[in-house]
Every structure is written in C-alpha cells, then in structure tokens.
Amino acid sequence: MNASTLLFFLISLTLGTGIGAVAYKWFFVKKSNEETSKTESTVLLESIEKVFKVVMAEGYFTEIYNYENHRNFWNLISDKKKALIIAKAKVLVGYDFGKMRFHFSHSDRKMIIEYFPEPEVLSMDTDYKFYDIEQGWLNRFQTDDYTAILNEAKKTMNEKALQSDLPRIASNQVQLMMFQLAATMSWKIDLLLPEINKKQLDEFSKYRPTDANIDSLKIDDNP
C-alpha cells in the first residue's frame, strides 16, 4: 500500500467516524432528550337547573388561618405539624327568589309577599396559599389534611361574610329594586310576613360598622 492510498484510507476512516458520531447524536441522544406530554380531559354535564338568584352585593376578604396539630405517639414522642394559610375570596351575596312566597291581587294591582328569604352567599371565589409548612417525622401532612384545612377555612370565610355588612347592603338593594320595578308598572307591594320573618328583615336592615382598632401613629420629631 503506497502513501497516497494509505492517506486516502485514513481520511475516509476519519470522515466515517465523524459522520457516525453525528448521526448517533442526532438520532439517539436527541431522541432520549425529547419530552412527550399527553393530556386527556373528560367533562361531564351532570344536571341543569333553572334558578332565580340575584346578586345584590359583593365583598373581598382576606383570611389568615393558622393550623397546628399535635400528636403523641406511645406517650413517648410528641410530634406536631403546622401551616399558615392566607386565603383571599370574592364573595357574592344575594337572594334566591325561588324561596320567596307571594301572590298577586290583580283587582288592586298588588303583589303580596308572604315570606321573604334571608340574604345568602350565592358564590365564593377563593384562592389559598400555604406558607411556613412544618411537619415532624411521624406527624406529616396528608392529602386529607389539606382538604380538611381548606374546607374549614372556606367555612370560616362564609361565616365572616354573613357577619359583615354585605347582608344589610343586599337587603337594602333588593327592596329598592323591587319597589322601583313595581312603581314603574303602577303596582304596589305589601309585605304580609310572619312575625319571625319581619324580625329577620329588621335584623338585616341594621347597620354593622366594621370593627377595627387603629393605633395612633407616633412621629418622633427628633432625627
């Protein structure tokens, strides 16, 4: 084998090795790094119901919820887990008119209301974030724990919304709306309510100022 033949053989071997390495990297290494995601979604419509619910007031709430749980194992080890949850919610308060009882007196153009429902929370759009999660070796958070914490926080938020001024605002709004609509059609509204129902409406008509304790700011004039 002369020198030119040997040189041609070496060049061909080098090129073949390089092309093979590139081909291996392209077909095998790249393929192993490819990520494939597949998502399937099934939406089932369970039921459709006709409702007559009207939103009369909305409020925005922030709740700071502290959760702490202690467990004692065999009276030897005391283990705890805790978390801080900050919840934000938009609460819509209004009326379900399907619960109202009434009839019409067409002779004197009157709408006679026999029962007027209480304002209620119609919907609550919530957002929860967990902070400062701590757990022990044995007492650890499980999926059921998070579900129970969120349910309790949502229940507390619902109670606070009904204790706020939202029901009073909704009560005033719905009465104004109904009497104005009746007046535009030359009708009148008579409230022939049971005594307990009257007391409920009176209670929701009371103003409840928001409780807040504000500390006075102390300004130091000396630098």
Score class of each variant (00 low, 15 high):
Thr147His: 06
Thr143Tyr: 08
Ile169Thr: 11
Thr184Leu: 01
Met178Asp: 07
Lys160Ala: 11
Thr156Ala: 13
Leu181Pro: 07
Ala182Ile: 02
Glu152Val: 06
Met157Pro: 09
Ser186Thr: 07
Lys155Arg: 04
Leu176Pro: 00
Thr184Cys: 09
Gln142Tyr: 11
Gln175Pro: 03
Leu176Thr: 11
Gln175Trp: 08
Asn172Trp: 10
Phe179Gln: 08
Tyr146His: 02
Ala183Ser: 05
Leu176Met: 02
Gln180Met: 04
Met178Pro: 10
Met157Thr: 03
Ser186Ala: 14
Gln175Tyr: 13
Asn172Tyr: 12
Gln163Ala: 13
Ile149Trp: 07
Pro167Lys: 04
Ser171Trp: 01
Ser164Cys: 09
Lys155Tyr: 00
Lys155Thr: 02
Gln175His: 12
Thr147Ser: 05
Leu176Gly: 00
Met157Tyr: 07
Asp145Lys: 01
Thr143Asn: 14
Ala170Pro: 07
Thr143Arg: 14
Ala183Lys: 10
Gln163Trp: 01
Lys154Ile: 04
Phe179Ile: 13
Ala148Ile: 11
Thr147Asp: 05
Tyr146Arg: 05
Met178Ile: 15
Glu152Lys: 09
Leu176Ser: 00
Ala148Leu: 13
Gln163Asn: 15
Asn158Cys: 10
Asn151Ala: 10
Leu181Asn: 08
Lys160Phe: 09
Val174Thr: 12
Arg168Met: 11
Ile169Pro: 04
Gln173Thr: 15
Ala170Leu: 04
Lys188Thr: 02
Leu166Trp: 01
Met185His: 06
Ala148Tyr: 04
Ala153Tyr: 07
Ala153Met: 08
Glu152Phe: 06
Trp187Gly: 02
Asp145Tyr: 06
Thr184Met: 09
Arg168Gln: 12
Asn172Pro: 07
Lys154Glu: 09
Gln142Ala: 15
Asp165Phe: 03
Ile169Gln: 12
Ala161Lys: 10
Leu150Pro: 01
Met178Thr: 12
Met177Gly: 03
Lys154Thr: 04
Val174Asp: 01
Ser164Trp: 15
Met185Tyr: 00
Ser171Lys: 09
Met177Ser: 05
Lys155Gln: 04
Phe179Glu: 11
Gln173His: 10
Glu159Arg: 02
Asp165Gln: 13
Asn151Trp: 08
Tyr146Cys: 03
Lys188Asn: 02
Thr143Ser: 14
Gln180Ala: 06
Glu159Cys: 06
Arg168Val: 04
Gln180Glu: 06
Ala183Met: 03
Asn172Gly: 15
Ser186Ile: 03
Met178His: 08
Asp145Cys: 06
Leu166His: 02
Val174Met: 03
Glu152Ile: 05
Thr143Gly: 08
Lys188Gln: 10
Thr147Cys: 02
Tyr146Glu: 10
Lys154Gln: 07
Ser171Pro: 08
Ser164Met: 12
Met177His: 10
Ser164Ala: 12
Ala153Glu: 12
Lys160His: 10
Asn151His: 03
Ala183Phe: 08
Asn151Tyr: 06
Thr184Glu: 09
